[in-house]
Computed example of a mutant assay.
Amino acid sequence: MTGLTTVADYLDAEKSAEGKHEFVGGFVFAMPSFSNRHNTIAGNAFAILHDRVRGGSFQAFNSSTKVRIQLPDHNRFYYPDAMVVCNPNALGDHFQDQPVVVIEVMSESTRRADLGGKRDAYLRISALKVLLLVEPDMALVTVHRRRAEGGFAVEHHHGLEASIPLAEIDTSLSLAELYDRAGIED
């Protein structure tokens, strides 16, 4: 898919597309394939979150579920590597609107977008409490955490012994678990 398209056309085409595509204000962008390391870390993130919130009021989603971001002048659809929501959309939807936690594993091919427009758009989601940007080649996670007084505070967690508190969803995320089997050493 290329060029301008409507949200309805994008969502319809994405149901049968061979690969994943992100949508930014009418423009559709094919997502690149990712390394086994990237997919291992993303899979760990989802598995950990799914296990920790299972049976409670939160629900985890993997990278097959889009997040819709409704900005004043356009919509965006991204595929985060993992997310947790408190108020999930209807089961028939193909996206979520209110993630509380979003995890993006960086890659060289997407780094510029991940740290630019995509990060900025995620931080505009009113329900979002925590955005985690995960480095794939070292045990380092940059966390953007919503402050009670407004805005986001930035934290850096590094080393396999580190753990990220996620009080917002009543758990924590160990970097040793996140990077398990990803070939990362301290």
Rank of each mutant, 00 (worst) to 15 (best):
T110S: 11
F77D: 04
L133Y: 03
A162K: 06
M83G: 05
G117K: 02
I169E: 03
D51A: 15
N89A: 15
Y78Q: 04
F34I: 14
H21E: 10
V101H: 00
G150P: 01
D9P: 07
R111N: 01
K66M: 13
H50T: 07
V100L: 06
V84M: 01
K129L: 01
A47F: 06
P99E: 06
Q98W: 08
K118W: 00
L123M: 08
E177F: 07
D170M: 04
R147S: 15
A30I: 03
D120G: 05
S107K: 05
S63Q: 14
E185I: 08
Q96T: 03
M1E: 14
V67E: 00
K118T: 00
S126R: 11
G151P: 11
S63N: 11
V143Y: 01
D93K: 13
R112L: 13
L166P: 02
H50F: 12
K129M: 13
K129F: 00
N75E: 15
H157S: 09
A176W: 05
M138S: 11
D180A: 14
H158D: 10
G3Y: 09
D12F: 14
N39K: 15
I69H: 05
V101W: 01
Y179C: 10
P136D: 07
M83Y: 04
V130E: 15
V7W: 05
P165G: 04
G116I: 07
S16K: 10
T171L: 01
R145N: 08
A90C: 09
L11H: 05
Q98I: 05
F58D: 00
D137L: 13
E18L: 09
R54Q: 06
M106P: 08
G150L: 07
G55M: 03
D97A: 03
G55Y: 01
P32A: 15
D120Q: 15
F58R: 00
V85F: 01
L160M: 10
I184M: 10
D93V: 12
K15I: 13
H156Q: 10
E18F: 09
S172G: 11
D9K: 10
E161F: 11
A148R: 15
F34A: 14
G19R: 14
L49I: 02
H21D: 00
N36Y: 06
A167G: 03
L49V: 01
F27M: 13
Q70L: 09
A139M: 08
D186N: 15
P99Q: 08
H157K: 06
V84E: 01
K66F: 05
L140G: 04
M83C: 11
F46V: 05
E14Q: 07
L71R: 07
D120I: 02
L91E: 12
M1F: 14
V84I: 13
Y10Q: 11
E185K: 07
H38Y: 06
Q70P: 09
A113W: 12
A60S: 05
G183A: 04
K118C: 02
